[in-house]
Design a binder for these strands. Sequence first.
DNA 1: CTGAAAGCGCTTACAG
DNA 2: CTGAAAGCGCTTACAG
Lengths: 331, 331
Amino acid sequence: MSRGWQASQKTVSRVLNDSPLVRPDTRDHVKALMQQMGYAPDPQARGLAFRRSFLIALVYDNPSADYIVNMQHGALDALRDSGFELVVHPCDSQREGYIDGIKRFAQKQKLWGLILIPHVSEDPALADALKEIGCRYVRIASLAIDEPARILLTHDRLAGAEVANYLESLGHRRFGLITGPNCCRCSSERGGGFVEGLARRGISLPPDCIYEGGYSFESGVAEAERLLTRTPRPTAIFACNDEMAAGVYKAALRMGLRIPADLSVAGYDDSPLASQLWPALSTIHLPIHDLGRQAASMLMGNEPPLRTRQPQRPSVTPHLIVRDSCQPPTG
Amino acid sequence: MSRGWQASQKTVSRVLNDSPLVRPDTRDHVKALMQQMGYAPDPQARGLAFRRSFLIALVYDNPSADYIVNMQHGALDALRDSGFELVVHPCDSQREGYIDGIKRFAQKQKLWGLILIPHVSEDPALADALKEIGCRYVRIASLAIDEPARILLTHDRLAGAEVANYLESLGHRRFGLITGPNCCRCSSERGGGFVEGLARRGISLPPDCIYEGGYSFESGVAEAERLLTRTPRPTAIFACNDEMAAGVYKAALRMGLRIPADLSVAGYDDSPLASQLWPALSTIHLPIHDLGRQAASMLMGNEPPLRTRQPQRPSVTPHLIVRDSCQPPTG
DNA sequence: CTGAAAGCGCTTACAG
DNA sequence: CTGAAAGCGCTTACAG
């Protein structure tokens, strides 16, 4: 109050970084002053001195626009007012040397951390490379392929089983399964969970009722056409993402089959597409926004440079959204 | 070659910034050395000295995931290997004070530039605020609402007329038009172009055949239901974006109408959705990827800090993609 | 609990 | 065409 308030640059810096070495009233006064003057620390100068930027990167090779945008918005939600910014970094995990590209990017920008989303998140070599250069990351994945602090689980296996339970309980006995690419862990988890779920209910899904798609609309059409020309025809199809499920719709329509009267269809992701199809698609809701938010929180968790939110206990649970694309089999 | 090559820090800096004040062979030698040592300048230090960061922000309040991701990838395409990074910054242009938020963001990060996409790009107050703080930007918009160097035109009016010409040439005479929100310039351009196009062919579209949607799937359903219960029923509907066109599909299906036999439908954007609908949607292709690339190029254009591509003459032309959703009217 | 010094890796003037 | 000085706005040791 009455003392000569000309707190040094250093004291201000301490307040900024939440150092305990500042008297509470000094801290409050400085904060009030900063607020009043509209002072915002320069991220570049801070970063230069910290030898680390306040940039968090979103790295992905996933083609689904809805997934990406949802994830971005979730992450931004956590980053809001934290002093961090989000940079986007798509990559092609098929290209030789893509890991070096990400490594250089991380080193050059002195990234605070990276959020890795499927399918690159499943590449052990990428994670190792990042660990090697001492760069933190969070992987979003369906299996516990890393230590808990570096991973966010999506529990795809459980959800796959939930679809199996639902369709079996409706009375279906002849199923078709369209998986994603076999190289994707999430695909084998989703499909594997489905197969296991059926098995637990005494139904074994023959391997020739399982087709490998590419997570794309077109692949959904193609595999559905193969499935639907089988005799006897399956009465229910589980497609491992919504885009392929939309492909199943197209194939069924073209063959004159009605959904759900002649064919029940279930998807995965609960993308906007799911509720835009007609009839609306029953699908597994993946809380992608939450995933993004939690991943960003985990990254900021330790050593918060400015006031950041409390990191929450990371966990997300997918669950089935029942809409209008499934019903008991007829005939 | 034989001289004591210990070019000063400063010389290296000059090479980095493409200064003309370096002898060509010195430049080449330094470049080779940098390449060899894998040296990459520190963006934070450079930015601090420049009083400006190498961050380009993508600012939007557009809900379409496809649009956003496409734009991002276009911009990243131009930014690749340029030393710039892309930060994403969604905003809510309906909220009081959103402009201040963007202003603070731009000032704090000392943004190199911003790409403004519809509909925020149409807000004159935002542009003014940015100009005021001396921050460069490129607006993507359907009308010449700014000086050429700060805008990228999408020519929606022309494309709207193209749809009119196409449908009229198929023989349609009774039309329905579902526009976007009237507050969006692109919506009135698209719709206005359509109406004008019909007028030039001697058809006047009565105002009660024009419904205002919200660019969303649901609004497409709702407005289509209103249009399709009119008597006589329109034989062709132009929806001002693909999402609403998908809504028209749903409404038509529910009413037992076949597309295109009973109803022709045209959309706008050529989003992935368009080719995933069945029948595939005829729509205006908007080269969003190109828009993103060109916007980023324009921003980097002057004073390139590292080697950047030549800025191209900015221009994009939308055009109609004919697929399977339109045919001559029957009966 | 607080301050004066040195440095993060670049750049812009300013001399030669 | 090239170099030595000072500074961008913060921080980390190091003293008190």
